[in-house]
Every structure is written in structure tokens, then in C-alpha cells.
Design a protein around this nucleic acid. Sequence first.
DNA 1: ATCGTTATGTTAAATATATAACTATTATCT
DNA 2: AGATAATAGTTATATATTTAACATAACGAT
Lengths: 213, 213
Amino acid sequence: MPKRENISMSVIRRLPRYYRFLTHLKEKGVTRISSTELSVKLGLTASQIRQDLNCFGGFGQQGYGYIVDQLCDEIGNILGLSNRYKTILIGAGNLGRAIATHMQFEEEGFELIGIFDSSPSKTGTRINGKIVMDTTELEDFCEKEKPVMAILCIPREGVHSILERLYSLGVRNFWNFSHYDISMRYEDTVVENVHLNDSLMTLCYRISNPNNK
Amino acid sequence: MPKRENISMSVIRRLPRYYRFLTHLKEKGVTRISSTELSVKLGLTASQIRQDLNCFGGFGQQGYGYIVDQLCDEIGNILGLSNRYKTILIGAGNLGRAIATHMQFEEEGFELIGIFDSSPSKTGTRINGKIVMDTTELEDFCEKEKPVMAILCIPREGVHSILERLYSLGVRNFWNFSHYDISMRYEDTVVENVHLNDSLMTLCYRISNPNNK
DNA sequence: ATCGTTATGTTAAATATATAACTATTATCT
DNA sequence: AGATAATAGTTATATATTTAACATAACGAT
Ligand SMILES: NC(=O)c1ccc[n+]([C@@H]2O[C@H](COP(=O)([O-])OP(=O)(O)OC[C@H]3O[C@@H](n4cnc5c(N)ncnc54)[C@H](O)[C@@H]3O)[C@@H](O)[C@H]2O)c1
Ligand SMILES: NC(=O)c1ccc[n+]([C@@H]2O[C@H](COP(=O)([O-])OP(=O)(O)OC[C@H]3O[C@@H](n4cnc5c(N)ncnc54)[C@H](O)[C@@H]3O)[C@@H](O)[C@H]2O)c1
């Protein structure tokens, strides 16, 4: 589908924001929008928006603008949101539970099919209707269900060993919340890190250095 | 302290990663490291690391490298981690509870001094020893305690109104987990957005387009 | 139907970021 | 102590990203 190969990550990371905003417009009943209007609302330049969208094709109409509904669908397709990538969650602590309970996986290309924890205090309990399994069941489960993505919500100590097991079970994609950088260990993996602590430290810097930018 | 003004955000966002890795080295008893060693472990170029650090001053010694302990402290100081910015949390749902329970605010420049929720099912309960207050108590509390940062863990519908109240109470810094872009509304605010859904959609794109980069 | 207006798609320029090359300084070995 | 190797700091180059400019196509008013 992409017009050109190798879209830059800078562009990709703006797409969900466009999608989110367009969805919101759609709900409000707005049918048409121009790159200039979008740029004002999103705090970007119109040029950037047009160029971003043109990486994937011409979705607008000259002299008219973009049809909200259509553009929203196009971006959703580019992102691949209609997929249902089978996903498992490792770690049913506070963070894992928050994610399992309130992320709308089905609207974002995924399906949560299993939750695992190593602590007997967690296994057997239910989260959002799903029973938390013991990590000893990981092999059996994965061989049967073939999940392609794993969410890591465990302390850093446990990550290395879990990662080896998941990799050998065919899992190649990871959404990682641990204080641990998975990247580079294997060539054929996709890792999306969410480092909340890093984010907080960045905020601390910005508060401490108000003159910066 | 900065050698030059206006450090770019690209540099700032790498600092926490350096800090995290150096802390880890320190714990392992490593006393000395070169930019090349660092670059291998972090998957960056040595050049970038040297240039990043030199934005703030010469922390190393030519022909020798960097002293782990010292460099770690320097980066911690640059980030401002020894601050104790008074912080309140709005929204004691799953995500808010996970953050309140497991973020080590005191090691990252902040101090959590109050938790608020609007639902009677939450107010009065305890999270990590702290009682969840009703949002009606927000004005009294803030006038007395003068928090400078607020963590937003509430649905998007509630954000606008809470934001207005917090702004008028002098809060200018926000760590935002809501599906809502605060930025640009006020000039003098600092907003660090954490959009988990955006992150997940980005991951979906990357899985769906394995040829991309 | 025609013309002017509008706003896209595209190409070009400017800016920002990352990498490489070079220089200078210090440690360490003989 | 002097020579050599190692490595930070610095300057220059290359690449990536953003912004601006322009040329073209479609709408809509007259
Ligand atoms: N909660 C946060 O705000 C936060 C912020 C930043 C990072 N993190 C990271 O996310 C991780 C989880 O956070 P949390 O708040 O849910 O912690 P938590 O302690 O509440 O939960 C961790 C869970 O992981 C389980 N676990 C530990 N090792 C395991 C293993 N090898 N296999 C399977 N399960 C295992 C534990 O039994 C526990 O249920 C933390 O370790 C931290 O690195 C959390
Ligand atoms: N949990 C996740 O995985 C996740 C992921 C992405 C984004 N988010 C965002 O974070 C928000 C919170 O997530 P959650 O999982 O904790 O949801 P949740 O429903 O468990 O908790 C929301 C809490 O906010 C409280 N609240 C609602 N309006 C309020 C107001 N005006 N003032 C004070 N409190 C108010 C509710 O009473 C509730 O306790 C979500 O709305 C969502 O936008 C959550």
C-alpha cells in the first residue's frame, strides 16, 4: 500500500495522533477538513501534514480538502488497525492489570488471548474475565495458540529469561514496560518500549530548565 | 549549568537512558567506561554519546574515559532528579493506582503529596497509604500545599475542566495519560504526554509493515 | 460554461540531527 | 622519562526532517 518504501519513524509516530483527532472530528459530525485547519488544531504546519499523508498516497482533493471519514479510514488501514494480532500479557501486577482492563486492543490491531504471572498470589485470579495462568503453562499455551505479540509488565530481573522463552516459541513482537532495553538482542524482533521513568525524568528536566526552548 | 542554551529534545530524551544504564553499571561495580563501550551496549554511535555529553560540559578524561559514578551524578544533576517537585494525581483508576503504587517519584525529582478522584467508590480508599480525596477538595488542598505538577489519569471528558481548575491554582506542569492533547492551550505550561494507545498503534504499523526500515 | 478561489500534491530550501574525521590530552607501558 | 596507545573534545560532513514555495487540479459562484 505505501507509495514509497521506508517511511520514517517521525512520520509513523504522528499517524496515531492524526487518527485520534480525525476519529474525534468524525464523532462530532465534521465531514470535511483542510490541512490548514488540521495544522491549527494539532499545532503542526500544514506542510508537514500534507507531506506526511502523501507518503502513502493522495487522499485529498485539491481545492476542497480531505473527507474526514475517508481519511480516517485510510490512516487506520495504513496503521493496520483491522488486524487482530494475538497477544499475551506477562506480569499481572498493577500496571499489567491496568493495561489488560482498559486498553481497547480490538480497536488497535490486537487481541489479548492470555495473561501470565509467576506468583501464586496472582495465578488463578481473574482480570477482565480472563484467568491469570502460571508462566509454567507458557510453552503449552503458545504452541497451541501461537501468539505473535507479548506485553512485558514484569521487573527487569525476569525479562531476560522470559524473552528467551518467548523468542523460541516464535514471539517476535514486544510491547515493553520493563526497565530494560530489549532492542538489538535479536535481529528480527520489533520492540516498542514504554519507559515511564524516562518520560518522568524528561519532564523533570523540562521543569528544572524552563528557558530551554 | 548547561554549557549552551537550548539543548534539543532529541538529546534530552536520551539522557534518562544514559542515566538508567550508568546506574546499572554502578550497581554492578563498574567504575570506568569509554564512549565506545557505552555505544556498543546502547546501540548508538560513540560520536553521538560524546556530543550529547558535551552539550553540558566535559565530564570525561581524554585517553581514559568516563568515571561511571561521576558521570551518573552529573546526568542526574542535569535532569534535576534531586528536586522534590510537589505532585498530585488526578484519577485513582487502574492506571492511576499502578502509577501511584510503583513509580519511584523520589528518585526522579518528584514527591506525590495527594491523590484525587471524583467517584465516591474511590474517595476515602487508600493507595500506598495515602487517602484518595474528593476532587471538591482540590482548591483547599492546592492553596495550602501548592503542588507544581499534576498527573492526569482520567478519561478525556474530564480533562478540560480539571485543567482549568489546576491552572488557576497555579499548576503549570502536567504528566498526561489521557487521550487528549493538552499542549498549546496555555503558553507557560510544560506537558509530557504518554499516549499508550498511540504507542500500540505504532507497534501495529511496524508489525504490519516488516519491510519498513 | 468560464473564471477565480481554494487547497492539494510536489519540488525546493532551510533547519536539525547524526555521523565521521580530526586534534589534543592523558594514561600506561617500556 | 619518553614514546605509544587510547580516548575525550571539537570541528566538519552527511543525512534526515521540517518548512516554505510553487504549480496544478477541483470546486463553486456568477
Ligand atoms: N507501575 C508503574 O508505574 C511502572 C512504571 C514504570 C515501569 N514499570 C515497570 O513495569 C513493571 C511492572 O510494574 P507493576 O507496577 O505492575 O509491578 P508489580 O510489582 O505490581 O507487578 C509485577 C508482576 O510481575 C510478576 N512477575 C515477576 N516476575 C515475573 C516473571 N518472571 N514472570 C511472570 N511474572 C512475573 C509479579 O508476580 C507481579 O505480579 C515494573 O517492574 C517496572 O519495571 C512500572
Ligand atoms: N489503563 C490504560 O491502559 C490506559 C491506556 C491508555 C490511556 N489511558 C487513559 O487513562 C485514563 C485512565 O485510565 P484507567 O485505566 O485508570 O481508567 P479507569 O476507568 O480505571 O479510571 C479512571 C478514574 O478516573 C476517575 N475520574 C473520572 N473523571 C474524573 C474527574 N473529572 N476528576 C477526577 N477523577 C475522575 C474515575 O472515577 C476513575 O476512578 C483513561 O481514561 C484513558 O484515557 C488508560
